[in-house]
Amino acid sequence: MALNQSAAAARGRNPLPGFGLSLGLGMAWLGVVVVLPLAALAVRATGMGAHAWLRAINDARVQAALKLSFSTAFCAAVVASLVGVLITWVIVRYRFPGRRLLDALVDLPFALPTAVAGIALTAIYAPTGWVGKLLAACNFKIAYATPGIVLALVFIGLPFAVRTLQPVLEALGREPEEAAASLGANRVTTFRRVIIPELLPAWLTGFSLAFARGLGEYGSVIFIAGNLPYKTEIAPLLITIRLEEYDYNGAVAIAALLLVASFLSLLLINLLPLLFQRGGGHD
Protein backbone atom coordinates (compact mmCIF):
# COMPACT_ATOMS: atom_id res chain seq x y z
CA MET A 1 0.00 0.00 0.00
CA ALA A 2 2.79 2.41 0.94
CA LEU A 3 4.66 1.44 -2.21
CA ASN A 4 1.63 2.26 -4.35
CA GLN A 5 1.16 5.62 -2.63
CA SER A 6 4.82 6.54 -3.15
CA ALA A 7 4.59 5.55 -6.82
CA ALA A 8 1.45 7.66 -7.27
CA ALA A 9 3.16 10.60 -5.57
CA ALA A 10 6.18 10.18 -7.85
CA ARG A 11 3.91 10.18 -10.90
CA GLY A 12 2.09 13.30 -9.72
CA ARG A 13 5.30 15.20 -8.91
CA ASN A 14 6.78 17.19 -11.81
CA PRO A 15 10.28 15.83 -12.58
CA LEU A 16 11.36 19.31 -13.71
CA PRO A 17 11.00 21.85 -10.89
CA GLY A 18 10.15 25.49 -11.40
CA PHE A 19 7.14 25.06 -13.67
CA GLY A 20 5.25 27.98 -12.17
CA LEU A 21 8.21 30.33 -12.42
CA SER A 22 9.13 29.30 -15.97
CA LEU A 23 5.51 29.49 -17.09
CA GLY A 24 5.13 32.96 -15.61
CA LEU A 25 8.35 34.27 -17.17
CA GLY A 26 7.53 32.69 -20.52
CA MET A 27 4.02 34.12 -20.63
CA ALA A 28 5.29 37.54 -19.52
CA TRP A 29 7.90 37.58 -22.28
CA LEU A 30 5.38 36.38 -24.85
CA GLY A 31 2.92 39.02 -23.70
CA VAL A 32 5.40 41.89 -23.99
CA VAL A 33 6.91 40.84 -27.32
CA VAL A 34 3.87 39.39 -29.15
CA VAL A 35 0.54 39.91 -27.43
CA LEU A 36 0.94 43.55 -26.40
CA PRO A 37 1.72 44.95 -29.90
CA LEU A 38 -1.05 42.88 -31.47
CA ALA A 39 -3.48 43.94 -28.75
CA ALA A 40 -2.60 47.58 -29.40
CA LEU A 41 -3.33 47.08 -33.10
CA ALA A 42 -6.63 45.35 -32.30
CA VAL A 43 -7.71 48.13 -29.92
CA ARG A 44 -6.85 50.79 -32.49
CA ALA A 45 -8.69 48.88 -35.22
CA THR A 46 -11.84 48.36 -33.16
CA GLY A 47 -11.86 52.02 -32.17
CA MET A 48 -11.88 53.30 -35.74
CA GLY A 49 -15.59 53.02 -36.24
CA ALA A 50 -17.56 51.54 -39.11
CA HIS A 51 -17.33 54.66 -41.28
CA ALA A 52 -13.53 54.78 -41.13
CA TRP A 53 -13.33 51.05 -41.85
CA LEU A 54 -15.54 51.30 -44.91
CA ARG A 55 -13.67 54.33 -46.19
CA ALA A 56 -10.32 52.58 -45.84
CA ILE A 57 -11.35 49.23 -47.30
CA ASN A 58 -13.56 50.49 -50.13
CA ASP A 59 -10.64 52.32 -51.69
CA ALA A 60 -9.93 50.78 -55.10
CA ARG A 61 -6.18 50.84 -54.53
CA VAL A 62 -6.54 49.00 -51.22
CA GLN A 63 -8.80 46.36 -52.75
CA ALA A 64 -6.35 45.80 -55.61
CA ALA A 65 -3.43 45.42 -53.19
CA LEU A 66 -5.37 43.02 -50.94
CA LYS A 67 -6.50 40.94 -53.89
CA LEU A 68 -2.94 40.71 -55.18
CA SER A 69 -1.50 39.77 -51.77
CA PHE A 70 -4.09 37.08 -51.05
CA SER A 71 -3.98 35.55 -54.54
CA THR A 72 -0.18 35.47 -54.81
CA ALA A 73 0.20 34.14 -51.24
CA PHE A 74 -2.27 31.35 -52.01
CA CYS A 75 -0.62 30.41 -55.31
CA ALA A 76 2.84 30.49 -53.74
CA ALA A 77 1.68 28.32 -50.83
CA VAL A 78 0.27 25.73 -53.23
CA VAL A 79 3.47 25.65 -55.29
CA ALA A 80 5.72 25.55 -52.22
CA SER A 81 3.66 22.73 -50.70
CA LEU A 82 3.78 20.61 -53.86
CA VAL A 83 7.47 21.18 -54.47
CA GLY A 84 8.08 20.64 -50.77
CA VAL A 85 6.69 17.10 -51.01
CA LEU A 86 9.17 16.26 -53.78
CA ILE A 87 12.15 17.79 -52.00
CA THR A 88 11.24 16.13 -48.71
CA TRP A 89 10.86 12.76 -50.41
CA VAL A 90 14.30 13.08 -51.98
CA ILE A 91 15.98 14.15 -48.74
CA VAL A 92 14.37 11.46 -46.58
CA ARG A 93 14.21 8.44 -48.88
CA TYR A 94 17.46 8.64 -50.84
CA ARG A 95 21.16 8.77 -49.97
CA PHE A 96 23.35 10.56 -52.50
CA PRO A 97 26.38 12.88 -52.59
CA GLY A 98 25.36 16.40 -51.63
CA ARG A 99 22.31 15.31 -49.67
CA ARG A 100 23.39 17.20 -46.55
CA LEU A 101 24.07 20.28 -48.65
CA LEU A 102 20.57 20.08 -50.12
CA ASP A 103 19.13 19.66 -46.64
CA ALA A 104 21.02 22.75 -45.46
CA LEU A 105 19.94 24.81 -48.48
CA VAL A 106 16.31 24.30 -47.52
CA ASP A 107 16.85 26.48 -44.44
CA LEU A 108 18.69 29.21 -46.35
CA PRO A 109 15.57 31.44 -46.74
CA PHE A 110 15.26 31.38 -42.94
CA ALA A 111 18.77 32.77 -42.45
CA LEU A 112 19.03 34.99 -45.51
CA PRO A 113 17.73 38.57 -45.14
CA THR A 114 14.61 38.89 -47.25
CA ALA A 115 15.91 42.05 -48.91
CA VAL A 116 18.97 40.13 -50.11
CA ALA A 117 16.70 37.44 -51.52
CA GLY A 118 14.63 40.05 -53.33
CA ILE A 119 17.69 41.71 -54.84
CA ALA A 120 19.11 38.36 -55.95
CA LEU A 121 15.85 37.23 -57.54
CA THR A 122 15.48 40.57 -59.31
CA ALA A 123 19.02 40.41 -60.64
CA ILE A 124 18.35 36.97 -62.11
CA TYR A 125 14.82 37.41 -63.46
CA ALA A 126 14.86 41.07 -64.51
CA PRO A 127 14.71 41.68 -68.27
CA THR A 128 18.47 42.26 -68.18
CA GLY A 129 19.21 39.29 -65.90
CA TRP A 130 20.54 35.87 -66.78
CA VAL A 131 17.19 34.11 -66.90
CA GLY A 132 15.03 37.17 -67.52
CA LYS A 133 16.89 37.97 -70.72
CA LEU A 134 16.00 34.56 -72.14
CA LEU A 135 12.38 34.83 -71.04
CA ALA A 136 12.08 38.34 -72.45
CA ALA A 137 12.88 36.93 -75.87
CA CYS A 138 9.78 34.73 -75.47
CA ASN A 139 7.67 37.72 -74.33
CA PHE A 140 7.38 36.29 -70.82
CA LYS A 141 8.00 38.58 -67.88
CA ILE A 142 8.74 37.49 -64.32
CA ALA A 143 10.32 40.46 -62.57
CA TYR A 144 8.13 43.53 -62.12
CA ALA A 145 5.03 41.39 -62.66
CA THR A 146 2.79 39.02 -60.72
CA PRO A 147 4.92 35.89 -61.46
CA GLY A 148 7.84 37.59 -59.74
CA ILE A 149 5.79 38.10 -56.58
CA VAL A 150 4.76 34.44 -56.58
CA LEU A 151 8.37 33.38 -57.12
CA ALA A 152 9.59 35.44 -54.17
CA LEU A 153 6.84 34.05 -51.92
CA VAL A 154 7.66 30.48 -52.97
CA PHE A 155 11.27 31.17 -52.03
CA ILE A 156 10.40 32.21 -48.48
CA GLY A 157 7.58 29.66 -48.04
CA LEU A 158 9.36 26.50 -49.21
CA PRO A 159 11.20 25.81 -45.91
CA PHE A 160 7.88 25.71 -44.04
CA ALA A 161 6.54 23.04 -46.38
CA VAL A 162 9.68 20.89 -46.21
CA ARG A 163 10.29 21.11 -42.48
CA THR A 164 6.72 20.21 -41.56
CA LEU A 165 6.70 17.17 -43.86
CA GLN A 166 10.19 15.88 -43.10
CA PRO A 167 9.69 14.52 -39.55
CA VAL A 168 6.40 12.88 -40.54
CA LEU A 169 7.96 11.09 -43.51
CA GLU A 170 10.96 10.03 -41.42
CA ALA A 171 8.69 8.60 -38.73
CA LEU A 172 6.55 6.82 -41.32
CA GLY A 173 9.43 4.67 -42.54
CA ARG A 174 9.21 2.13 -45.35
CA GLU A 175 7.24 -0.55 -43.53
CA PRO A 176 3.76 0.61 -44.64
CA GLU A 177 4.90 0.74 -48.27
CA GLU A 178 6.44 -2.71 -48.05
CA ALA A 179 3.28 -4.09 -46.44
CA ALA A 180 1.13 -2.57 -49.19
CA ALA A 181 3.42 -3.98 -51.86
CA SER A 182 3.27 -7.44 -50.28
CA LEU A 183 -0.52 -7.25 -50.52
CA GLY A 184 -0.32 -6.54 -54.24
CA ALA A 185 -0.72 -2.75 -54.33
CA ASN A 186 1.14 -0.92 -57.07
CA ARG A 187 3.15 2.25 -56.50
CA VAL A 188 0.34 4.63 -57.40
CA THR A 189 -2.12 2.89 -55.10
CA THR A 190 0.44 2.77 -52.31
CA PHE A 191 1.15 6.47 -52.61
CA ARG A 192 -2.54 7.35 -52.80
CA ARG A 193 -3.85 5.04 -50.07
CA VAL A 194 -0.86 4.84 -47.70
CA ILE A 195 1.46 7.82 -48.08
CA ILE A 196 -0.96 10.68 -48.77
CA PRO A 197 -3.26 10.08 -45.75
CA GLU A 198 -0.23 10.14 -43.45
CA LEU A 199 1.28 13.27 -45.00
CA LEU A 200 -1.94 15.24 -45.49
CA PRO A 201 -2.09 16.89 -42.02
CA ALA A 202 1.55 17.96 -42.24
CA TRP A 203 1.05 19.10 -45.83
CA LEU A 204 -1.89 21.29 -44.83
CA THR A 205 0.15 22.67 -41.93
CA GLY A 206 3.00 23.59 -44.27
CA PHE A 207 0.54 25.17 -46.68
CA SER A 208 -1.02 27.28 -43.93
CA LEU A 209 2.36 28.42 -42.64
CA ALA A 210 3.55 29.33 -46.13
CA PHE A 211 0.31 31.21 -46.82
CA ALA A 212 0.48 33.17 -43.56
CA ARG A 213 4.15 33.97 -44.12
CA GLY A 214 3.59 35.08 -47.70
CA LEU A 215 0.62 37.24 -46.79
CA GLY A 216 2.78 39.57 -44.74
CA GLU A 217 6.03 39.31 -46.70
CA TYR A 218 7.63 42.62 -47.58
CA GLY A 219 11.41 42.60 -48.07
CA SER A 220 11.79 39.97 -50.77
CA VAL A 221 8.78 41.19 -52.76
CA ILE A 222 9.19 44.95 -53.13
CA PHE A 223 12.35 44.62 -55.22
CA ILE A 224 10.91 42.19 -57.74
CA ALA A 225 7.27 43.34 -57.77
CA GLY A 226 7.66 46.67 -59.53
CA ASN A 227 5.23 48.25 -57.02
CA LEU A 228 2.85 49.70 -59.58
CA PRO A 229 -0.42 50.85 -57.97
CA TYR A 230 -3.43 48.72 -58.96
CA LYS A 231 -1.10 46.20 -60.66
CA THR A 232 1.89 44.95 -58.64
CA GLU A 233 1.51 46.77 -55.34
CA ILE A 234 1.20 44.42 -52.36
CA ALA A 235 -0.76 45.17 -49.19
CA PRO A 236 2.27 45.35 -46.81
CA LEU A 237 3.82 48.02 -49.04
CA LEU A 238 0.55 49.95 -49.07
CA ILE A 239 0.59 49.96 -45.27
CA THR A 240 3.95 51.74 -45.38
CA ILE A 241 2.64 54.18 -47.99
CA ARG A 242 -0.42 54.98 -45.89
CA LEU A 243 1.81 55.67 -42.90
CA GLU A 244 3.97 58.00 -44.97
CA GLU A 245 0.80 59.79 -46.02
CA TYR A 246 -0.24 60.07 -42.33
CA ASP A 247 -3.33 58.00 -43.11
CA TYR A 248 -3.09 55.99 -39.91
CA ASN A 249 -6.64 54.66 -40.10
CA GLY A 250 -6.00 53.29 -43.58
CA ALA A 251 -2.78 51.63 -42.46
CA VAL A 252 -4.44 50.12 -39.38
CA ALA A 253 -7.36 48.79 -41.42
CA ILE A 254 -5.08 46.97 -43.88
CA ALA A 255 -2.82 45.67 -41.11
CA ALA A 256 -5.81 44.39 -39.14
CA LEU A 257 -7.15 42.47 -42.12
CA LEU A 258 -3.77 40.83 -42.71
CA LEU A 259 -3.50 40.05 -39.01
CA VAL A 260 -6.91 38.37 -38.93
CA ALA A 261 -6.13 36.32 -42.05
CA SER A 262 -2.79 35.18 -40.68
CA PHE A 263 -4.31 34.36 -37.28
CA LEU A 264 -7.06 32.28 -38.89
CA SER A 265 -4.42 30.36 -40.87
CA LEU A 266 -2.46 29.62 -37.71
CA LEU A 267 -5.65 28.71 -35.85
CA LEU A 268 -6.47 26.24 -38.59
CA ILE A 269 -3.06 24.64 -38.07
CA ASN A 270 -3.88 24.00 -34.42
CA LEU A 271 -7.35 22.67 -35.24
CA LEU A 272 -6.15 20.25 -37.91
CA PRO A 273 -5.04 17.49 -35.47
CA LEU A 274 -8.44 17.57 -33.78
CA LEU A 275 -10.26 17.38 -37.11
CA PHE A 276 -8.21 14.42 -38.29
CA GLN A 277 -8.56 12.65 -34.95
CA ARG A 278 -12.35 12.98 -35.18
CA GLY A 279 -12.29 11.70 -38.74
CA GLY A 280 -10.15 8.74 -37.75
CA GLY A 281 -12.33 7.96 -34.75
CA HIS A 282 -15.48 8.14 -36.86
CA ASP A 283 -14.06 5.71 -39.40
Results as ranks from 00 to 15, higher is better:
residue 111 A to P: 05
residue 147 P to A: 07
residue 186 N to C: 11
residue 107 D to C: 06
residue 147 P to W: 12
residue 237 L to P: 01
residue 217 E to Q: 08
residue 228 L to K: 13
residue 67 K to R: 13
residue 228 L to W: 01
residue 103 D to Y: 00
residue 208 S to L: 15
residue 212 A to R: 05
residue 148 G to R: 14
residue 212 A to H: 07
residue 258 L to D: 07
residue 144 Y to G: 02
residue 48 M to D: 04
residue 203 W to P: 02
residue 34 V to G: 02
residue 16 L to K: 07
residue 120 A to C: 09
residue 187 R to C: 01
residue 102 L to T: 04
residue 194 V to Y: 07
residue 53 W to T: 04
residue 179 A to F: 03
residue 212 A to E: 09
residue 277 Q to H: 06
residue 137 A to S: 09
residue 38 L to E: 09
residue 93 R to Q: 08
residue 143 A to H: 09
residue 180 A to N: 12
residue 190 T to K: 10
residue 30 L to N: 01
residue 207 F to T: 04
residue 18 G to T: 08
residue 226 G to A: 12
residue 92 V to Y: 05
residue 108 L to H: 00
residue 169 L to W: 09
residue 200 L to R: 08
residue 88 T to F: 02
residue 158 L to F: 02
residue 109 P to L: 03
residue 153 L to W: 09
residue 269 I to L: 04
residue 240 T to V: 06
residue 176 P to C: 05
residue 117 A to E: 00
residue 158 L to R: 00
residue 111 A to C: 15
residue 176 P to M: 10
residue 242 R to C: 01
residue 145 A to I: 10
residue 170 E to W: 05
residue 271 L to D: 03
residue 97 P to C: 08
residue 81 S to A: 12
residue 165 L to K: 04
residue 97 P to T: 08
residue 109 P to V: 00
residue 132 G to I: 06
residue 213 R to I: 04
residue 79 V to C: 10
residue 13 R to C: 04
residue 208 S to R: 05
residue 168 V to I: 15
residue 124 I to P: 00
residue 115 A to D: 01
residue 135 L to A: 08
residue 182 S to R: 06
residue 179 A to M: 15
residue 92 V to S: 04
residue 123 A to M: 13
residue 161 A to F: 03
residue 168 V to M: 08
residue 90 V to T: 14
residue 102 L to M: 15
residue 59 D to Y: 05
residue 250 G to L: 10
residue 174 R to D: 11
residue 249 N to W: 08
residue 37 P to R: 09
residue 257 L to S: 03
residue 238 L to A: 04
residue 139 N to E: 13
residue 233 E to A: 01
residue 99 R to L: 07
residue 139 N to I: 00
residue 79 V to G: 03
residue 241 I to N: 09
residue 254 I to A: 04
residue 214 G to Q: 15
residue 281 G to M: 14
residue 151 L to M: 12
residue 114 T to D: 09
residue 118 G to M: 07
residue 200 L to V: 11
residue 132 G to A: 10
residue 132 G to F: 08
residue 28 A to C: 12
residue 42 A to Q: 04
residue 151 L to G: 01
residue 19 F to D: 03
residue 87 I to Y: 00
residue 152 A to S: 09
residue 12 G to T: 06
residue 276 F to Y: 15
residue 157 G to F: 08
residue 19 F to M: 09
residue 20 G to K: 14
residue 162 V to G: 05
residue 201 P to E: 07
residue 136 A to R: 14
residue 118 G to F: 00
residue 196 I to A: 06
residue 84 G to P: 10
residue 196 I to M: 12
residue 148 G to N: 10
residue 58 N to I: 02
residue 107 D to H: 03
residue 60 A to T: 13
